[in-house]
Computed example of a mutant assay.
Amino acid sequence: MSFPDAVVRALRCSVCTACVGLNDRTLRCERGHSFDLAKQGYVNLLHAKVPSGTADTAEMVAARVEFLDGGHYGGLADAVADQAATAGAGLVVDAGAGTGYYLARVLGRLPAASGLALDVSAMALRRAARAHERLGAVVWNLWEPWPVASGSASVVLNVFAPRNGPEFRRVLRPGGVLIVVSPRPDHLRELASVVDLLEVDRRKEERLEERLAEHFERVGSQEHGARLVLSPGDVRRAVMMGPSAHHPRRLERLGEVREPLAVTMSCRISVYRPKT
């Protein structure tokens, strides 16, 4: 398991910002800073300790893998891949990639593209590193300047993840596209009947536009929704793969779910181009 050449060329040393090369299983810059690939295939370029409650835990990652393997968000992944396909070949950077589910679907649609999965969770990136042969996985805090070359990406994906507008803009090449997937207020609302979910900010879309307006213009938008019937096990997985899993007291009623539950999957896919 190794990093695609296109990903290595796009990466920068997180200590000095110099270019890096891959020798055996070590990324090394010209000044001698080195970063070993973990045996699971990802590399950690982050120097700071990740604050508790920030990164996905092993239990959260397992829940996400099992839930997504059930195909519940397959239509959403296809819709994201459809949008990414309009940008052509190149490097696809997934900011907040998690297990690499959406990035792998995009790479499957773009046979000449390579993918860089960025996420703060090493647990999630263990999965992402195996999600596709043309994918490289890097542990990084999205709020910090990314160890990625300016203008190196043809597509930036941001699916249910933190948004760093200046870095989105910096790494995108001219003519590149940013694809953002955000939950709508009614997303999975029925789960609130069985667990004390963290609420979706009703001004989330407005805040999204405000944060990106300085650097991007929106050129397309579509709503994506579906009615899902979840087994009791998938209800638990849907809750455990999200931020509510960091708050155990909110999960006390999960064990009460004994029957399938119909829920609403509702999100918006927005496409942006960098302002010139």
Rank of each mutant, 00 (worst) to 15 (best):
L208S: 00
D36C: 09
F168Q: 10
E199C: 11
P274K: 09
R105L: 05
K39D: 02
R218K: 14
L188Q: 10
M241H: 05
S182E: 15
D69C: 04
S2P: 00
R105Y: 08
R169H: 04
V80M: 07
F35R: 03
G115Q: 15
A48G: 01
E206L: 11
F168D: 07
S231I: 07
E259I: 02
P174K: 04
P4Y: 06
D24W: 10
E223H: 07
G53D: 07
A213N: 15
E59S: 14
E190G: 09
G96I: 10
P166Q: 10
A79F: 10
E167S: 07
E30D: 14
I179W: 03
P51H: 11
R184G: 12
V194L: 09
Y272K: 04
E214V: 12
A87W: 11
E190K: 10
H72R: 09
L135G: 07
A124P: 01
A161W: 10
P51L: 13
E214M: 07
L116F: 04
A213Y: 15
L191S: 01
T99W: 02
L172E: 05
E66P: 00
H187N: 10
G175F: 03
R273V: 12
A79E: 10
S34M: 04
S182L: 15
V239Y: 00
V235E: 08
V92W: 01
K39G: 00
